[in-house]
């Protein structure tokens, strides 16, 4: 290595370390919650798709997931978690709604 370059290399290393350190620290700190949020959003998305598979998806569910993603990207994890959970529950009920009607049932008010 060229000795004349050594000081600049050291300087660069120092700068990199200074810049990187807090980022790494912060990442490590928020990781569990962010990961949990992503897990919940994925679960909500899966529930939404399951409801769609029986043609029973609600318009409200996708909107909640969108909002959850937006909250997540802003770092508002608690809000994102709540929204994702609500979306998942909606997806599950919507699936139930569709699945429970897999057989045609003519309502009692229509008399043949």
């Amino acid at each position: 290595m060229n000795m004349r370059r050594l000081p600049s290399v050291i300087l660069l290393a120092v700068i990199m370390a200074v810049v990187a350190a807090p980022t790494v620290a912060a990442d490590a700190a928020m990781d569990p919650k962010a990961a949990e949020v992503m897990k919940q959003i994925d679960a909500a998305e899966a529930a939404r798709k399951k409801a769609a598979s029986v043609e029973s998806e609600w318009t409200t569910t996708g909107k909640l997931i969108k909002k959850a993603r937006a909250a997540e990207s802003k770092g508002d994890y608690d809000k994102a978690l709540g929204l994702a959970k609500e979306a998942r529950l909606q997806g599950e009920i919507a699936y139930q709604q569709g699945a429970s009607q897999s057989e045609l049932r003519i309502p009692a008010y229509l008399k043949y």
């Binding site: 609500e86 529950l89 909606q90 009920i93 709604q97 309502p107 009692a108 008010y109």
Partner: peptide
């Protein structure tokens, strides 16, 4: 009443 037209406000959140 399974044929009730009323929205299930609780069940459907």
């Amino acid at each position: 009443n399974p044929d009730s037209a009323m929205v299930p406000f609780g069940l459907h959140r």
